[in-house]
């Protein structure tokens, strides 16, 4: 970052940086300052010291919820990959017209608000919803409740996050030179071997980008698990909300937020060391 900055300042005028000034001020006031405030609260409330962090790392509940958050984020990432990879493949290997259509469908869902999509799942999966009705139609009496389970919250999160995965993989797949595939075939690579040795490594950056984005966004999910999930599978964001709302434990809530932030930064840091963060946005 520093290297690039000096280079830019050296080779261009100062103007681009002046144009960035409002953004910098904005970020400082609305992002850096509150963040520092959160950091401060985590070590000063209710009394100075690291007591809050000790609680986060030793309390049975917090460990469990952090683990659950990671489990959920991993599960959602894997599901997004399973759903997204074939779809991206289809898009990159069909006529441009069809690819456009699929892209349009995906982005339409992407542009719909989180809340609308979450409520849509409530309606679809509800006891009086069409899915339960279908299950009953095929003869299963007394079907299990779908709503308020790990299944319903995971399904909705995969739906919300899959576009990130699909777009990332698709953009990489589009750039693969078909000549590479043909030459591999001419060398005798077939099916599984072709996929394993040629196609998969070539699409790996897309998978990594998509997975990191989905995983990191999922770590902070709040509304969807609260509205659709089971009370037993809480995520950290919901728990932080609870600490503050119910217990006025601003310090403990802040400490949990800081831990979540640090973990997220670690994930991004690992990604950065392997691939470079600047690639994350294509």
């Amino acid at each position: 970052m520093m290297r690039r900055m000096t280079r830019l300042v050296d080779h261009q005028t100062i103007w681009p940086w002046l144009l960035l000034l409002p953004l910098a001020v904005y970020l400082l006031v609305f992002f850096a300052v509150p963040l520092i405030e959160v950091l401060k609260m985590s070590v000063t409330e209710p009394k100075p010291g690291l007591g809050n962090y000790q609680k986060v790392f030793t309390g049975a509940l917090y460990g469990k919820v952090f683990l659950n958050t990671f489990g959920t984020a991993t599960l959602v990432t894997v599901c997004c990959l399973i759903v997204g990879y074939p779809l991206a493949y289809l898009m990159s290997n069909t006529t441009p017209r069809r690819a456009m259509m699929i892209l349009l469908l995906i982005t339409m869902s992407f542009w719909t608000s989180f809340l609308v999509r979450t409520y849509a799942w409530m309606v679809l999966l509800g006891n009086n919803g069409p899915i339960i009705w279908l299950i009953e139609m095929i003869g299963i009496a007394d079907p299990p409740g779908l709503l308020f389970t790990r299944f319903s919250s995971t399904l909705a999160m995969v739906h919300i996050l899959a576009p990130y995965m699909i777009m990332n993989i698709y953009s990489v797949m589009k750039k693969i030179d078909p000549v590479l595939i043909r030459s591999a075939e001419s060398m005798g690579a077939r099916g599984g071997s072709l996929f394993r040795h040629i196609y998969l490594p070539l699409t790996a950056p897309g998978i990594a980008n998509g997975a990191v984005l989905v995983f990191v966004i999922c770590l902070g999910f709040y509304v969807t698990p609260v509205l659709l999930g089971s009370p037993r599978e809480q995520m950290v964001a919901g728990l932080i909300g609870n600490q503050i709302e119910q217990f006025l434990a601003f310090g403990l809530g802040s400490a949990m937020a800081v831990v979540l932030l640090v973990i997220t930064l670690i994930v991004l840091g690992i990604y950065h060391s392997r691939f470079g963060l600047d690639k994350l946005w294509g």
């Binding site: 989180f114 809340l115 709040y222 909300g241 709302e245």
Partner: peptide, 23 residues
Amino acid sequence: MSNSTRSKLIRPSRRQFLHGTAA
């Protein structure tokens, strides 16, 4: 951060601590 909108269903005050846009 994600999920920047919520309804009255759950008290939105929490989001204001959690989500940049809402805050």
